[in-house]
Amino acid sequence: MKRLLYLLSLILIILSCRKEDVYELNEVHASSYNANKNKLKSSNQFISILYANLFQEALSANELFEISRCIQSIGDKEVAHEIVFSNFMNKNGVIIPSDSVMRDDLDAFIEETYKRFFVRDITEAEREFFISFFESHPYVSAEMVYMAFAMSNEYQYY
């Protein structure tokens, strides 16, 4: 009887040993929430980065110097930046999605815009806001979105 019990226990132990599934986490590379931006861009940095974001090419040293002087000549920097931005938008060569391309895939557009201007991933709350904003404001253009990003405080920091 003892032997029988021993054998039964052994069989039960062997049967209970099953290979478990192993769950692992895939590593995802995501920028931190504000991408650790804590330094204010200088006037020159702001202009050259803005130009590169809009035209996807570098601004010449001469133009950088001239635009920097223009910005210094106006005390309210928000006003100065708005004027410089809108002046850029009147030039040829700005690389900006058309409004139809933007409206075709709002999700991709806003994700790309966050990466382009803020160099970080969009959060779900931000995505929610913008998608709903675009849907409730059908005439908002890509240019207006770019302007809002370029004028935002986060864009002033790196």
Binding site: L40, Y139, M144
Partner: peptide, 19 residues
């Protein structure tokens, strides 16, 4: 609408960034 979007972005930024 541009300022509305900017204010949203600034409000998000204020929670972590500098004014």
């Amino acid at each position: 609408p541009m300022y509305k979007m900017k204010y949203f972005l600034d409000n998000v930024w204020y929670s972590q960034g500098n004014a």
